[in-house]
Write a protein that binds this DNA or RNA. Sequence first.
DNA 1: ACTGACGTTTACGTTAACGTAAACTTGGAA
DNA 2: TTCCAAGTTTACGTTAACGTAAACGTCAGT
Lengths: 133, 133
Amino acid sequence: MERTYSISDLAREFDVTPRTIRHYEDEGLLAPARSGQQRIYTARDRTRLALVLRGKRLGFSLAEAREIIDLYAAPQGEVGQLEALLEKLDEKRAILEDKRRDLESAINNMDRYAERCRERLTELQAMEKAAAE
Amino acid sequence: MERTYSISDLAREFDVTPRTIRHYEDEGLLAPARSGQQRIYTARDRTRLALVLRGKRLGFSLAEAREIIDLYAAPQGEVGQLEALLEKLDEKRAILEDKRRDLESAINNMDRYAERCRERLTELQAMEKAAAE
DNA sequence: ACTGACGTTTACGTTAACGTAAACTTGGAA
DNA sequence: TTCCAAGTTTACGTTAACGTAAACGTCAGT
């Protein structure tokens, strides 16, 4: 038997509320099995949740996250399906690449700025030291 | 004389509405000069707007974007100010680094998946070719 | 003088992403 | 059996980030 999770298991692990997880289900991002009324999450469900949350951290809306994540569950039976899938993967990949560029320049800007600050700091400290003599 | 921009100049360039730009001003992200009632944006204002929009693309709220961007306009007169600034820069830098990790794994996942899809595709195509004989 | 095109303020409306509360069920510990 | 913690549905509330509309000012072109 594969391990399963309750909704509060996942809520605790990912630091969100059960409400949030149910909301993702309402939006079609998750589709856990049921045991009676209770939701039962498999390892695959858990992975999907992790993907959703990562998507959110990267600035995607739930709808955008869904579009991407659903590609990982797309049918691959026919040649046509696979070709269409590869198209869409390329498209999403380009979006991620754009974000990477944004992120790299943000980080580079900050690093250069911090470096100038450090230089200015040692300079100021040298001045104070000189004035103290 | 330095070049300036009207609100619709910037709106066009960055593909947002004037309303959005005014909203950023309401939220304290921009503070353009005025000529009478009219807002006059300098190159520095334009840069700040670009930073705001990049922040949004990276998943920051306006408040978070503001916190980061304001660091670039922080006073650096005293040693204490510079040290505090460097602290905060480090903190924000760590957040960006987290996003980078997220982004890298998202891209790597997708690349590996796409690769498996391509393999499966050539495999399927080989099967079809064999069946056609 | 008149008319757009562009700007302004004010204020209510909208959408996404949940929060919160109420009322109910249900499986296990005491 | 009773009770409680954890689950469920339903539905209204909230916040951020703007959209949209009204009512008005201003200034270059005819």
